[in-house]
Amino acid sequence: MTASSAYLPPGLPTPAADLDDLGFWEHCNRRELRIQRCSACGHFRHTPMPTCPACRSMDFTWAEVPGTGTVFSHTIAHHATHPALRGFGPYNIVVVLLDGADDVRMVGNVVDVAADEVHIGMKVVLHWEATAEGGYLPRWRRA
C-alpha cells in the first residue's frame, strides 16, 4: 500500500495517542483491531477510558474484535474544516457499529464507495490503511 492510496490527503492530524488510547493505536499499527474490554464484567468500551462505565472496574484487556460492522450513520463532508482538506472532497464520514463489541461505535470512512453511496445499515469490513509514519489506520470497505 502506498501513500497515494490514502482515502484523505496528507496533512490531517494523525492519531495522537494519549495515555488512555495508546494501546488502541499500538495494536492498530500491528493491524489488529482491539477494543478495551472490562475484565470484571466483560463490557466493551470505546473511546478508551480508565474505568468501565458499566461497572466502574479499572481492569481491562485489549480484546480483538471481528472487524466487521454496520454503518450507524454518516455524512458527506464538503467544506474543508482543516487546511489539509482544501480543494479536496466531498468525502464520506461514517459511524460504524462494530460486530461483537456490545454498543461500540467508531468514526471512520468507507474507502471504496462514492460519498453518496453510503447508507445507514450498510455492512462494512475493516480496511487497514498505511500511514506516513509507518503505522496503520483502520478504515472500512463495503462488505
Binding site: 484523505l8 490531517l12 492530524p13 494523525t14 492519531p15 495522537a16 495517542a17 494519549d18 488510547d21 473511546t47 450513520s73 454518516h74 455524512t75 463532508a77 467544506h79 474544516t81 482543516h82 482538506l85 468525502y91 464520514i93 459511524v95 467508531m106 468514526v107 471512520g108 470512512n109 489506520l137 478504515r139
Partner: peptide, 17 residues
C-alpha cells in the same frame, strides 16, 4: 484524536450524523 484522522473535524459533522 479518534475523529480527526477521518476528516471529522467539526461539531457540524456530529450534528449532520
Amino acid at each position: 484524536g479518534l475523529w480527526f484522522p477521518y476528516g471529522m473535524t467539526s461539531p457540524g459533522a456530529a450534528h449532520a450524523i
